[in-house]
Design a protein around this nucleic acid. Sequence first.
DNA 1: AATTTTATGTCAATAAGCTTGTACTATACG
DNA 2: CGTATAGTACAAGCTTATTGACATAAAATT
Lengths: 184, 184
Amino acid sequence: MASGKVLGHVQDVPGRKKAKVRAPVPEDASWITPETMYRGLELHFFAHLNLADDADRQLSELGFGRTHHRILYFVSRTPGITVGEMLSILRVTHQNVQRGLGELVRKGLIEQRTSMVDRRQRQLFITGEGQELFDQLTKRQFERISRAYSAAGQTAVKGFWKVLWHMIEDSDREWLERGSSKDA
Amino acid sequence: MASGKVLGHVQDVPGRKKAKVRAPVPEDASWITPETMYRGLELHFFAHLNLADDADRQLSELGFGRTHHRILYFVSRTPGITVGEMLSILRVTHQNVQRGLGELVRKGLIEQRTSMVDRRQRQLFITGEGQELFDQLTKRQFERISRAYSAAGQTAVKGFWKVLWHMIEDSDREWLERGSSKDA
DNA sequence: AATTTTATGTCAATAAGCTTGTACTATACG
DNA sequence: CGTATAGTACAAGCTTATTGACATAAAATT
């Protein structure tokens, strides 16, 4: 139930359509033109490129790829996540996760523990060393984001979150809404 | 000339720092926390995943990859762009562009014309058929964006643009600001 | 208890992609 | 002219991703 805490920042709450409250005016949508959509696509694209570059440089120095980064990310942000859950969220094949995960475990960056609920499952946790590396990787991204946030201001950031939220598939939103139970 | 129109929507104008106007209060930035930054990173990540998926499905059916898509995108949006310009904007190697471009040209989706200014350069243009395919590829992305825009509202979208804009490197902004001279 | 299903891990082979390096042509510029 | 630039082409070499076949262990079913 704590999910509201996080989402509170995001927007007027996913499920509710505030338009429903009352819509006397047909909600003028004439500003949604191909040009404005291209604009969004392009800004998004470049931001993503830059964000990815931030981490990629360091990643390749360590012989890691984006898969490793993603695994670290999800394990760090969702401690106790199982391999299966990662497979369904990340867009990676079985083998792919396995390889990356194996390397990370061997290097002591991620730890596997047998789930006590279902002993077939392995729960994943990031180690201190893993977290350290991960922090390094996100450092530049955070600097970039922080810069953008403070330059754009809190109101803009709320809009930023709101638009992105509506752009995301329900199935992916689930993970974003996690933490209601865990989060620990 | 049309460029101003587009940028007008985006934010308070790239170059200008409106904070400079007057900043009596130290601009409270306490809301910029690791959690809010993770939030941005994650929303952005999933939105990108979804946006990419929209096009990828169709792309792979045609035997094309993301490089092809990017080339189509940039040629369509920047008619007359040269190979060199694409190289500097896109994150792809010389060879990579060459291969993709070659295929697209051979399939009649892109046309090369020798620049009349510098006859070593080839200017790239998308053909009618190419544009058709491209429209197909962006169709789903546009639907996604349009949905998000209208759900989030124009104010939010402005914030969305603003934040992204500040997240992007100067060097990449150049292309976004193009059209001042060309755009035809 | 026997059988089936699920979750995970491993191997091996293949396919895709990307990078590099080397040549070669056509222009441009001085 | 000679050198630098823009683009094209070919191919070896490497890294990644994808697939399929199997092996285990434990949970679920019957």
